[in-house]
């Protein structure tokens, strides 16, 4: 799956790395932390994706049944992958992930329905990109359905630029460091 991707020339950020705490627009105390590799966090995420509204799936993820959810989580919790999770107490409210791809990383972000439109997505994105930058990630890309204007707006606000609008899904990209990607 290697093909030439375009990335902005200018470096975005800096982004503050996790952990970070804030009160969301619904008054909930949210904490964002990097994934600690524990079984407890894995199970909390499997539970979050089990409750995920199928209407909020994007290009087939998250999968809809428990077995496929766990296969997918195993894939995106690879050694070189980076994951941050938004917590409301012991409940996983959102999750953002960077998965290595040649000399860059692919990004995806998910916020559980009842926690959407509360400012959590912006914090999650910034925390993940901060975590990525401090871990040596230089270039990040994502795809988004072109009708999903709230998501496109969020990505633009963070500093993503449209890099390919000729496919079914729109591709957007951001540069975190001057050099090439040093791994994750």
């Amino acid at each position: 799956m290697s093909r030439d991707r375009r990335f902005p020339d200018e470096v975005a950020g800096p982004f503050e790395s996790p952990p970070r705490r804030f009160e969301d627009r619904e008054g909930r105390e949210i904490e964002i932390r990097a994934h600690d590799g524990s079984e407890r966090e894995y199970e909390a995420l499997a539970s979050m994706y089990g409750e995920f509204d199928p209407a909020d799936r994007a290009q087939g993820i998250p999968p809809s049944d428990d077995r496929r959810i766990r296969e997918w989580l195993d894939n995106i919790f690879c050694d070189a992958c980076l994951n941050v999770i938004a917590w409301d107490g012991d409940t996983a409210a959102g999750h953002a992930t960077l998965v290595p791809d040649d000399d860059a990383h692919e990004l995806a972000i998910f916020v559980l329905q009842e926690y959407q439109e509360a400012g959590i997505g912006t914090h999650l994105m910034e925390a993940l990109l901060g975590h990525g930058a401090e871990s040596g990630v230089g270039k990040v890309w994502l795809t988004v359905e072109r009708w999903n204007q709230p998501a496109v707006g969020l990505y633009k606000k963070i500093g993503f630029e449209i890099s390919d609008s000729e496919s079914f899904e729109m591709e957007m990209a951001i540069r975190l460091t001057d050099g090439s990607d040093e791994g994750g």
């Binding site: 799956m1 290009q59 087939g60 993820i61 894939n75 995106i76 998965v99 692919e106 079914f168 899904e169």
Partner: peptide, 13 residues
């Protein structure tokens, strides 16, 4: 279609 590293389904041209 193919799948991205993330597991997203991508439809070819």
């Amino acid at each position: 279609g193919t799948t991205s590293p993330m597991g997203k389904i991508q439809l070819g041209s």
